[in-house]
Amino acid sequence: MDEIPAYELFEIREPASHTIPFVYNSPHSGRIYPPEFIAQSRLQGISIRRSEDHYVDELFSAAGALGAPLLLANFPRAYLDVNREPYELDPRMFDGLLPSYANINSLRVAGGLGTIPRIVAENMEIYARRLPVQEALDRVEAVYKPYHAALRRLIARTHVQFGFGVLIDCHSMPGNIRVAGATSRPDFIIGDRYGTSASAELSRMAVSIFEEMGFAAIRNKPYAGGFITEHYGRPSRGLHALQIEINRSLYVDEVTLERRADFPLVVAAITSFMRQMADYVAKFAGDTALAAE
């Protein structure tokens, strides 16, 4: 875990030339922890890092070489989660009254995983005491809104340049994930909000690519996609959003958070996935299932 007093909240890693209609986004791989946040937390060391999507930015690092931008968070998910509505806030966490427009009743808030999370994985409470309401609002203004503004610009640019666009929202999931009715744990889950955020052809192709590489891949269960996938996916307008969840046990030791020896092999598999998805979309760029009608 890096701890430095000042840093860029997020990065846009631009390709030398934007040649494919894709935008890659890694909102939960940030691992720079503000010292003031650490001072507020009852958790330290590896414990506070349990909610990271560990090294997902590195897994998708070939985006630029393939011709697509990669947006990645440097701030940690435990500090603020951009894969939520802007004001999914738990009133139990704060001193003072939240604004009337705050969504205090969502299932994610109830589970402790709102825009300002109350817990990290394994239900570990983050904060030693309540936070001022203004701090939550300040984080939304300083972190959440600039991040989404950057993501919107990338998506809009892609849409204008190519006539359609594909957002790949990149995440990881615990290695002990269970899927009802399945006999084995999935290596990858592709989420398309049950067909509402991307064309079925696109999500089926994503699953097929991983299966042909020998991985276990499924769609939507139990992760169909979060706020980002739902908010930006507009297939009728030629804007498709897929969420990809990668089983962490493939590439990281979930106890020590060290990269496994197979880490380069997983990077290579994901790079192949990205390349094959780009090739697939190029073949069907004029198809109304992908392009705006």
Results as ranks from 00 to 15, higher is better:
residue 2 D to T: 15
residue 6 A to Q: 14
residue 8 E to Q: 13
residue 12 I to H: 10
residue 17 S to N: 13
residue 18 H to I: 04
residue 19 T to E: 15
residue 26 S to T: 12
residue 31 R to K: 05
residue 40 Q to L: 15
residue 41 S to H: 08
residue 41 S to R: 08
residue 45 G to L: 09
residue 45 G to V: 05
residue 47 S to P: 00
residue 49 R to D: 04
residue 50 R to W: 06
residue 51 S to A: 11
residue 51 S to I: 09
residue 52 E to H: 04
residue 52 E to Q: 05
residue 60 F to V: 13
residue 61 S to M: 05
residue 64 G to I: 05
residue 65 A to S: 15
residue 66 L to F: 13
residue 68 A to V: 11
residue 68 A to Y: 08
residue 69 P to D: 01
residue 70 L to H: 09
residue 79 Y to Q: 02
residue 81 D to Y: 04
residue 94 F to W: 09
residue 96 G to S: 07
residue 104 I to Q: 12
residue 105 N to W: 07
residue 109 V to Y: 06
residue 114 G to W: 00
residue 115 T to M: 09
residue 119 I to D: 10
residue 121 A to K: 12
residue 133 V to R: 05
residue 136 A to N: 14
residue 142 A to V: 12
residue 146 P to I: 07
residue 146 P to W: 09
residue 147 Y to L: 02
residue 147 Y to D: 00
residue 152 R to G: 06
residue 154 L to D: 00
residue 160 V to Q: 00
residue 163 G to R: 01
residue 163 G to E: 02
residue 165 G to E: 00
residue 172 S to H: 11
residue 173 M to E: 09
residue 180 A to W: 05
residue 181 G to W: 06
residue 183 T to W: 11
residue 189 I to M: 02
residue 190 I to V: 15
residue 194 Y to M: 08
residue 196 T to K: 05
residue 204 R to Y: 04
residue 225 G to I: 06
residue 234 R to W: 08
residue 234 R to G: 05
residue 235 P to T: 07
residue 246 I to V: 14
residue 256 T to Q: 01
residue 256 T to F: 03
residue 265 L to I: 03
residue 268 A to D: 15
residue 272 S to I: 01
residue 273 F to I: 12
residue 276 Q to V: 04
residue 278 A to Q: 02
residue 282 A to S: 15
residue 285 A to I: 10
residue 287 D to E: 03
residue 288 T to C: 00
residue 289 A to Y: 06
residue 291 A to F: 00
residue 292 A to P: 01
